[in-house]
């Protein structure tokens, strides 16, 4: 993996760099920011996160499991209370709800990890510790013959630029 990383001091120059680099069709781009910003979100124009699907599937599985386990246990070892039905769905809804929340939440975290691609063992290339402090960054993965154009574009907008591989 090789490319150019630019460190920007300001948000608006980062947004302008994103627009310019997208116009240049320079290559895959990763944008770093100390905090999530709507301005960057609008400039990058990504689609909605797919984490929601993990949440939905996890929640449904949890709710189903939450009904299944007490029904199965009640049926396996019947304890009749007050002459009522052995599998009783109203109290089991509480178990189902709790397991929906539990498994849905854990599935959401799993979706976050899978889609955001972490835990990350190494920091790889294209990262600078200043991105968690106050600076913004743009990493463009591109072949050596495109690096000059990318670097020039970033420098024009005030970035500190370096090549990494």
């Amino acid at each position: 993996m090789q490319g150019i990383v630019g460190v920007f001091r300001t948000l608006d120059s980062t947004v302008e760099a994103i627009h310019a680099l997208r116009k240049l069709r320079a290559g895959d781009m990763t944008v770093y920011s100390p905090a999530p910003r709507h301005e960057l979100e609008h400039a990058l124009d990504h689609g909605p996160s797919v984490v929601r699907r993990f949440t939905l599937i996890g929640g449904l599985l949890g709710a189903s499991f939450g009904y299944w386990i007490p029904i199965w246990i009640s049926d396996y070892w019947p304890l009749v209370v007050g002459g009522k039905a052995v599998p009783s769905w109203i109290p089991y809804t509480i178990i189902s709800f709790e397991l929906m929340v539990l498994i849905g939440s854990l599935a959401t975290v799993a979706g976050l990890f899978a889609n955001a691609r972490f835990p990350r063992i190494t920091m790889t290339v294209g990262y600078d510790p200043r991105f968690s402090d106050g600076d913004f960054g743009v990493w463009v993965e591109c072949p050596p013959e495109r690096q000059r154009d990318v670097a020039d574009t970033m420098r024009k907008l005030g970035a500190e630029v370096r090549s990494e591989s």
Partner: peptide, 19 residues
């Protein structure tokens, strides 16, 4: 966990946090 403040991480993080 190797968090890097990238746009991909923030995008999924924000959605996961909301859920």
């Amino acid at each position: 966990l190797g968090w890097r403040n990238s746009d991909r991480e923030w995008r999924h993080f924000a959605r996961a946090y909301l859920f």
